[in-house]
């Protein structure tokens, strides 16, 4: 069809076609199931020492933010909130507290999945292709059948 377009619009037609091919290439999942955009968007997370990098980036950022607090003269309504690094400290402690509470709470409150006797499966409106391949994919998600 596109080959028979009038010559006048040929270039633009070809451009559109090329763009469409590019978009389609960028949105077609490869055979290994890897989406091409993932490399562009999140390729950086696959670096080997990403953990250490993130750690140091955020450590430096944190220090910078606390230091910046020295430079900014804040006018808080609540007195003690004016102390340097208060928000940072509160945020850090809150977060750590919440996460660490996860250990005892998890032990206290977590039960088997069929505790209520109705562990259930996925809802009816999941991808129909998925349902078709479920017998084959059963080994991929052993917990789902438990």
């Amino acid at each position: 069809m596109t080959d028979e377009t009038p010559t006048g619009r040929d270039t633009s037609g070809r451009f559109v076609k090329r763009a469409a091919t590019a978009v389609s290439a960028m949105s077609r999942t490869s055979d290994e199931g890897i989406h091409p955009m993932s490399k562009v968007l999140f390729g950086w997370t696959e670096r080997k020492n990403i953990g250490a990098i993130l750690f140091w980036v955020f450590a430096v950022l944190s220090v910078l933010l606390v230091l910046a607090d020295l430079a900014v003269d804040r006018h808080e309504k609540i007195g003690f909130a004016n102390s340097v690094g208060f928000y940072g400290l509160w945020g850090f402690l809150s977060f750590a507290f919440v996460v660490l509470m996860g250990w005892p709470l998890g032990r206290l409150l977590r039960r088997d999945e069929d505790y209520y006797g109705d562990a259930g499966g996925p809802p009816a409106d999941v991808d129909p292709d998925l349902v078709d391949t479920r017998p084959g994919a059963a080994s991929g998600k052993p917990e789902g059948d438990a």
Binding site: G51, S62, L65, Y87, F92, F95, L100, E143, A146
Partner: peptide, 30 residues
């Protein structure tokens, strides 16, 4: 500034806890 402090240090806490293996793993269960 204050909001960024709160959030960035909280994220830092996450990274720290994760590195120290103190972040509870996700386990199946209700």
């Amino acid at each position: 500034l204050t909001q960024m402090q709160l959030l960035i240090l909280a994220v830092f806490a996450f990274i720290l806890l994760k590195r120290l293996m103190l972040y509870p793993a996700e386990k199946p269960g209700v």
